[in-house]
């Protein structure tokens, strides 16, 4: 028999896990742990990072760094969401579109964001647009592929039923295909949010003076190691936070789906 009072509170174990990681980090960096393959000799300690973070927060630079990065990520992500869902619906619905569009997209898919940099600079008139394009490439494919998968997985009987109830092709797309694919699209949007942040540092290597990715890259160039970790943690937290927001919004948009899974 298991008493419910023996179960730890919900956040206890995740919280302890995070604290354990920080303690390990502290010990490894303070005692310059060297395992041969990995070495903590040059890794800044949590305390140094906290000091650096404090400096960034109290400086006037944090806000422009944040707003530049957020607007780039959201512009790139927004464009990826529109295009990914739009093209995904067409590819999933029409076999011809699949043969026309999917092969070139499959070739572009494995190209990492960093490899896009030179071409992005050449293609786009401003460095701002090139940076938005890089975050766009990060978000596009998870959204596109999950949309295609969602559309293809829609129950054919529901489509047949809708046709028998008088739905024309456009109504079928709007009333059956889109809501039917919605759970998968939202999965794609959540993953795409994360991958869009992945590409931020790469994007902001291009140029500029503002942005968390730029801050991280610049800190490496001028050897301010604690600042690198501050930048990394900021990107991690912002990426996690925005993915979480997408997830919550998704839950709100498809209440029927979560209900069905719990039944």
């Amino acid at each position: 028999m298991r008493g419910t009072f023996l179960q730890p509170p919900k956040f206890l174990i995740p919280g302890l896990s995070l604290i354990a990681c920080v303690i390990f980090w502290h010990l490894a960096s303070t005692y310059k742990l060297d395992l041969g393959l990995v070495s903590f000799v040059y890794v800044p300690s949590p305390y140094a990072v906290a000091v650096a973070a404090g400096e960034l927060v109290t400086s006037s630079k944090l806000l422009p760094h944040l707003t530049s990065s957020l607007s780039r990520v959201f512009a790139g992500y927004g464009a990826a969401a529109l295009l990914g869902i739009g093209i995904g619906l067409f590819i999933g619905r029409w076999k011809l579109m699949e043969s026309v569009l999917l092969p070139p997209l499959e070739v572009l898919r494995p190209i990492p964001a960093v490899a896009w940099i030179p071409l992005a600079i050449l293609i786009f008139p401003s460095s701002e647009l090139s940076m938005i394009f890089i975050t766009f490439t990060g978000a596009l494919f998870p959204i596109l592929l999950n949309t295609i998968h969602g559309v293809e997985a829609v129950d054919k009987r529901l489509v047949a039923s809708a046709r028998s109830l008088g739905a024309k092709p456009w109504a079928i797309l709007r009333e059956i295909i889109l809501p039917g694919a919605a759970p998968s699209i939202i999965t794609g949007l959540t993953i795409g949010m994360g991958t869009s942040w992945f590409c931020l540092v790469t994007a902001e290597m291009i140029s500029g003076q503002w942005g968390i990715g730029y801050y991280t890259w610049e800190s490496y160039l001028i050897q301010r190691y604690p600042d690198i970790v501050v930048g990394m943690l900021l990107i991690g937290i912002l990426g996690m936070g925005s993915s979480f927001l997408i997830k919550v919004a998704g839950r709100f948009l498809i209440p029927w789906y979560h209900l069905r899974r719990n039944v």
Binding site: R157, S161, A162, E175, I176, P179, G180, A182, I254, W256
Partner: peptide
């Protein structure tokens, strides 16, 4: 035979 109601 198996209903085709729209779950959404």
């Amino acid at each position: 035979q198996q209903h085709t109601l729209f779950p959404w």
